[in-house]
Amino acid sequence: MTHTLHRITEIYGENDDFVILCMATQKFNDQGAGEKLKKIFKLVADTNPDNLADDNLGGRHTGYTDVEILGHMGDKAYVGAAFSDRSRLKEALRKIKEADLGMSVVVSGNYKAVFDILKEIGLKPHTVNMSLGIYGNKALLPDREVLAISTMCGHGMVTRQRIENIVNKMKSGKLNAEEGGKTLASTCTCGVFNPELAAQILQRVSEKEKE
């Protein structure tokens, strides 16, 4: 999940694209962490995130119910959630802060916006991992629109072929953007792929290709 900082969903201008990651620290506070992470999972679930998962199993869009995910969560659980608006993100962070469970919480996204949100709810940033972007043989990369969607799954499990296939299905009327976004989210096990944002990009791409 290191890759969440390299998302490029802002290709069509400013938008809200945030990810929350919550975890215990191995050998520091992982004993009994499972129950705390389950509480966090439930708190985040109440804020209606666009995606939600435990990285060790999968999530709402990979075919699991919240009950199944909670049943699987242990001390090594890794809660991941995606948000396409900051008000829900803020609500989730406020709930986690109030619960005060001692687990580490990371917010990925525009870090200046994140700093502002933290200030509003009385939290402080401790450390930041900033993106300097992509280097090397960029000719190997897919188109920017495809990349904007595929990078939402940092592990690379949303392939360019699938995205192109979804766009083709949309163009022929077999699928709408919302269905396309959700279909693509089905291979992202850690819950950070945002089907709402993917749908927005897919819509633009299919309209552009129709012209």
Partner: peptide, 12 residues
Amino acid sequence: IRPNGKTTLNLG
């Protein structure tokens, strides 16, 4: 520096 980053909060 890109605008994106991953911010660790002071909660752990």
